[in-house]
Simulated scan of single mutants.
Amino acid sequence: MTATVFRNAVLTGACGGLGQALARALIHQGAAVALVGMHRPTLEALAALAPGRCAVYTPDVADTAALQAMAADWMARCGTPDLVVANAGVAGGFDTAEASDLAVMRRMLEINLLGAATTFQPFVKALRAQQHGALVGVASIAGWRGMPGNGAYCASKGGLIRYLESLRAELRPAGVLVSTVSPGYLRTALTAGNRFAMPGLMEPEAAAQALLAGVARGRTHIVLPARIGWLARLLNVLPGALHDRLLLAQPRKPRVGEAGATAIPGLPHPDETPTHDRQSNNL
C-alpha cells in the first residue's frame, strides 16, 4: 500500500521537539504547512525552509476566537487541509495538597485537552464537506492510567483520548480519519527534567516519521514506540496496589518552580511563585 503524501497541513505545537520534526517532515514531503506555536523565531526558521508554502501563527491554542481566525486565514490561502495535528502540549508534576498547583492543572487542561478541540473545531465542517482528511491528537501513554505526582498531565491526556474516541465516531461516516497518538518518552524539552527511568526513549525525528506513516495508512491508534505500549499494558494488568507501589518508588516529575521543570505558558514565571509553594513534596 502506498502511503499518502499530505499536501496541506495544520500543525500546532510546532515549536517543540516533536512539532519541529513533524514540520520538517511535512515540508520535505512538499506540503503547505500552517505552523502554529508560541515562539515566533522558531516558527519563522521553519517557515524559511519553504517560504512559499508556510505561514506562521502564534495564538494561544485555548483561545477559540484566535484559532478560528487562524483557520479562516489559512483556508483562504491554501484551502481545506488534509491533515490537522493537535500537537500543542505541556507537562509538569502536580500535588493536590498545594493550592498553587490547581492553576497548573487548569492551564494544563486548557492546553492539552481544550486546545485540541479548539484546533479541530474550525476545520470540521470543511473536512466533512470534502469527505476526506485526518484529525490527529497527540495524547500520551500517561493518559492510559494515572500516575502518582502526575495527576494533572494524566487527566489532560486521558481526557484527550476519550474526546478523540467520541470525535472518531462522529466523523467516521464522513470519511474523516481521527487518529490518537500515544507517545511514550520522546527526547524533548518536556522530558529533559525527568528524574525517573524512561524506557523506550525515542528521538523526535523517528517519532514524526512513524506518526505520519501511521496516519497516512489510516491507523486510528498509534503508539510511539510500539513496544512501550506493550510495556504499559503489562503494567496495567498488575493489581492496583502493586502497580501504585512500584510507581510510588520512582522519583516524581518536577513541579512548576522546581529544578528541571518546563515552563507552562500562561502561568507566572517560577521566580514569581512563593517560596513555600516551590518546595518539593516528593516522598
Score class of each variant (00 low, 15 high):
V178W: 01
R227Q: 15
A47M: 09
V104Y: 11
A126W: 06
Q130A: 14
G159M: 07
A155M: 12
L267S: 10
G229D: 15
A249N: 13
G137W: 12
I264R: 06
E165H: 08
L127T: 06
I161V: 05
P51E: 04
R219T: 02
A213G: 14
G52P: 09
R252Y: 11
A263G: 13
W74P: 15
H39W: 12
V138C: 13
K125F: 09
W74K: 14
S156V: 09
M1R: 07
G266Y: 01
M198V: 01
R233M: 11
G37N: 11
A208F: 08
G257N: 03
A169F: 03
P148D: 11
L224M: 02
E98T: 04
T119W: 08
A197F: 09
S280N: 07
V215S: 00
R168E: 00
L113S: 04
N150S: 03
R245Y: 11
R187Q: 10
A55G: 13
G13F: 10
L231N: 08
S179H: 04
R24L: 09
T188L: 03
D277Q: 02
A189D: 07
M70I: 10
A9N: 11
A23H: 08
D60C: 04
L18N: 03
P41L: 14
A76N: 04
T275G: 05
A134G: 04
Q250E: 08
V56A: 10
R162P: 00
A47D: 12
L164P: 03
P204A: 06
Q121L: 02
V84S: 05
E110P: 01
M147I: 15
K253Y: 01
A261V: 00
S100M: 03
L190K: 08
L114S: 07
R219Y: 02
D82R: 05
E165F: 03
G149D: 11
C154F: 14
N194Q: 06
G143W: 15
L26E: 14
